[in-house]
Design a protein around this nucleic acid. Sequence first.
DNA 1: GCAGTACCGTACCGTACGGTACGGCGCGTC
DNA 2: GACGCGCCGTACCGTACGGTACGGTACTGC
Lengths: 232, 232
Amino acid sequence: MQPSFARQDETVPETVPETVAEPPSARQQAVLDAVLGLMVEEGDQLTMDAVARRASCSKETLYKWFGDRDGLLTATVRWQASRVHAGRYAPNALDVTALRESLQDFAATWLEVIASDTSVALNRLAIGHAGSRKSNLGGIVLANGRFAIGERVKPVLEAGRAAGLLAFDDTEAAFRTFIGLVGRDIQIRLLLGDALPLDAGEIRRDADRAVEQFLALYGRARTPTPPSREED
Amino acid sequence: MQPSFARQDETVPETVPETVAEPPSARQQAVLDAVLGLMVEEGDQLTMDAVARRASCSKETLYKWFGDRDGLLTATVRWQASRVHAGRYAPNALDVTALRESLQDFAATWLEVIASDTSVALNRLAIGHAGSRKSNLGGIVLANGRFAIGERVKPVLEAGRAAGLLAFDDTEAAFRTFIGLVGRDIQIRLLLGDALPLDAGEIRRDADRAVEQFLALYGRARTPTPPSREED
DNA sequence: GCAGTACCGTACCGTACGGTACGGCGCGTC
DNA sequence: GACGCGCCGTACCGTACGGTACGGTACTGC
């Protein structure tokens, strides 16, 4: 019942970590990748048998490593989160152009993430589990997704304000407006199974449009509005 | 196997409708309400037994009326959708004030809906089923939620444009920006189980802020910006 | 009163899936 | 080369749940 992430055949002798996550070993990562793959391809049929078969390991091992099904799913969510944590958006020299590019980069990256098969499958899973008590995958997804991203973007916004480029009181509110302008109804539609084609070009345009709209709302300096707005 | 919505003890003799939905009888509506209640309260444990117990009817009846579990869920989604279809937002006399109020009404109403327990539970269910093939509840929710709402709001936007109050080329794009400004990350956070307190006052303020931001982006006439923006 | 019908309650069946047990194998270590 | 161990593969168990069958009851039309 006590899931452990420490492999017994490695240095660690008998630390017996509680329920918390050590970084998974290479073999364990392969298992978690199998779970992700299965999630994306099969969606619903995420059974322990299927995972064991796909990862070429025994169910007994799964239970030894991850405790139970929820432990496996939790570890999978954490694993996926750990590999998305990349990219920093804080520019050094802060003029309007740098700020704009920084925000565009963030917006495009984030759109790519939420539009990815993996993210959609993972969010579906977490949302499905959010309805019942026990082991909130939803909380983990939120903490590593939405909230983690906020903590990386807000410094950019505040730097922009410090440089006199943006005007706002509430950083959180400004960030949420930005999130709204970037994401709009994309995520919920994808989660509900809408086709919604979203290639790289579309993402780029969406990101640019959202940043221009955000600057129009929160920009202080009269920025040289670049190429073209989406409409008009 | 062939679900039918026509009660046999009513006038209809032997129409045997295919798989499509007649309006459910009062008794059937009670059953569907039981499903909704169960969905909200129990989340996951939406079993046919539980529904039958709660609705004080036999499982056999459930299967006769709705065919199978998916049929029951589909009918429930349709039933809920049918009662949300209310309210029209198209004002007659179109000046800036009327347009603003119309948009505010829409925004507040929509926020109330997506923040309701029922909507959250229903969307969770539909999203959970979107992963697997067969009987896309997701499509139904989208059609009756997001898309239906769009069809009712877009005329307002276009009327605003015709009156010279708004400026945009692509109505759909303008609408999606509006949706983004109103909803921001609220729906996904609620679906993932975030607490996110959202009382009537908060909704009102959110709606007003979103409308002001939308008018700032798309408004043509220099509107007398009312009371106060959220920040600044 | 009697047949037919719509329905409730409950018992029942089959299966899928979470979780466990066990035999066998490869790879250490002594 | 014998032992231990971590792991694979597979067989197995218990239960929960979708779906069906059936007896009992109330109501309707004749």
